[in-house]
């Protein structure tokens, strides 16, 4: 068990996480809005809308997840960099763990 909390990342900025959260919420709710797509027309190659819409909605969903990924990773890298530069600056300094 660790006795002192050694931070792995610097403090978070809320902006990127709020943006990512909203996009993820859209990604969860949009495919569940059944009345939006429970219909036959327009057909595609004879396939009713209900079917082709749901199958093809995989692609916008993947695009949305890619955007969320880049937002979150950029912020994650920034937070990690904060801790690493701090650690480098304070090598040998006993007050290192006071930083939260």
């Amino acid at each position: 068990m660790s006795t002192t909390e050694v931070p792995t990342r610097g403090p978070a900025r809320p902006g990127p996480y709020i943006m990512a959260g909203v996009l993820l919420a859209v990604g969860i709710v949009a495919p569940l809005l059944v009345p939006m797509y429970a219909r036959v027309d327009p057909r595609l190659f004879g396939i009713p809308f209900f079917y082709w819409y749901q199958i093809l909605s995989v692609f916008p969903e993947a695009g949305l997840l890619w955007i969320v990924y880049t937002i979150v990773i950029r912020e994650d890298d920034r937070r990690r960099e904060v801790v690493r530069s701090l650690r480098a600056a304070q090598t040998g300094d006993t007050t290192a763990e006071a930083q939260k």
């Binding site: 993820l24 969860i28 079917y51 749901q54």
Partner: peptide, 21 residues
Amino acid sequence: GALTGFFAVPYTIVLYPIVFL
């Protein structure tokens, strides 16, 4: 038909934002 079978498609789409989170 669709109700008992095709829900697998939205199921495996909604899945991934949850996994990401």
